[in-house]
Computed example of a mutant assay.
Amino acid sequence: MREAIRVDEQGFFVEDVVLQDNEPLPEDCIEIKVPDGLYRPKWNGTSWEEGLTLEEIDAIVNAPTEPTELEKLQQENEQLKASVIELTTYTAAQEERYNQAILELSQLIAGGNV
């Protein structure tokens, strides 16, 4: 068995193909492996080259990525921590107001001035 690469009419990579040893190489196949690092391999008749422009590659490399599940959970955790701090601060302020109201009420009941 041997491997080949099928290309389309413009020379762009289509798929890997497995051939029997005695099977002839189809006209749309090349037996030269595609080198690593090509975004869209293109056969130019003698060698493999990059089929994308620099602008197209930049668009791929610099494309915004969707946050991972872990990143989403970390962001949600930070939001929850901020909410807990906000609620804790609010609760402490409410407790202070409640204590002040109890003190004033106690003084009024005892006949004192507020």
Score class of each variant (00 low, 15 high):
R2Q: 05
A4W: 01
V7L: 05
D8F: 07
E9Q: 10
G11L: 13
F12I: 00
F13P: 00
V14Y: 04
V14I: 09
V14A: 09
E15G: 06
V17K: 04
D21S: 09
N22Q: 09
N22D: 15
E23G: 06
E23L: 06
E23M: 07
P24Y: 01
L25F: 07
L25S: 11
P26M: 04
C29H: 13
C29L: 07
E31N: 07
V34K: 14
D36H: 14
P41G: 09
K42H: 11
N44M: 09
E49I: 15
G51Q: 11
T53W: 01
D58P: 00
A59E: 14
V61K: 14
P64T: 03
T65V: 15
L70H: 06
L73K: 12
Q74W: 02
Q75W: 06
E76C: 02
E78F: 07
E78C: 02
E78Q: 14
Q79H: 13
Q79A: 13
L80C: 03
K81A: 14
S83Q: 14
I85S: 12
T91N: 10
E95M: 10
E96V: 07
L103E: 11
S106R: 11
Q107M: 14
Q107L: 13
I109L: 13
A110V: 00
A110I: 00
G112C: 01
